[in-house]
Write a protein that binds this DNA or RNA. Structure first.
Lengths: 104, 104
DNA sequence: TAAATAGATGAATATAATTTCATATGAATA
DNA sequence: TATTCATATGAAATTATATTCATCTATTTA
């Protein structure tokens, strides 16, 4: 990860969200916090993969963590991620009709 | 590019912005439209690289194009990209103090 | 219409991100 | 305290993305 240029923060931000697994996970903890094992069970994702990904999401402030004993509960950062997704929904509806109609 | 899942549109959206060259280009056309050669000159980027990237940006509705003779002028989609960058600035300030302080 | 300039394209290469695997650590409880 | 469950970690393998290179087409103008 290159963070040495002007847009480094943006780049890291977007890169963190440009991943299906992480987006799926964000979708799951959108309603209520879940711990790592729960996320694995729900998604079918492998444990260490989820762990790696949660670290990234946490590092970039997209999720918050609360440790309860041996469990770690993750919750969505609703302050920015929620409005962000809304904004993109808008954009997608207006400008990206082509997107998702098929492969490029 | 996998667009077959629920988050496909998000994924593509973020992936398009998760690139230093493209972010640099967006920064340049933020103020006023520029054609491809101008973008190359200003950035020092190679012509075909810029061409490939502009195609992506256009395809995802992040820039608009106007053809004038043999030139193609690109302008920023200020409807969504501008507020989006603002939102992320906010997020970055609040939650991502760690980001950009060094390598991970 | 030939030369020059702007941009496009596809395949090859280079680079980077993601996932998996094996294993480690830490907390809880039988 | 031995075992079990939750999570972490690093390196290897995989997969995805970006960039370059050579070449092509389109438009303008001498």
């Amino acid at each position: 990860m290159n963070s040495s240029n002007t847009f480094g923060a943006y780049k890291l931000f977007f890169a963190t969200l440009a991943n299906d697994s992480r987006l799926t996970i964000l979708g799951i903890i959108r309603k209520e916090p879940k711990n790592l094992s729960e996320i694995c069970k729900i998604t079918g994702f492998e444990q260490s993969m989820v762990s790696h990904n949660m670290k990234l999401l946490e590092y970039h402030g997209m999720v918050f963590v609360e440790k309860k004993g041996k469990f770690k509960y993750y919750s969505l950062n609703k302050n920015t991620i929620k409005p962000l997704l809304d904004l993109i929904d808008q954009h997608t509806n207006k400008y990206c009709c082509k997107i998702l109609e098929g492969k490029r």
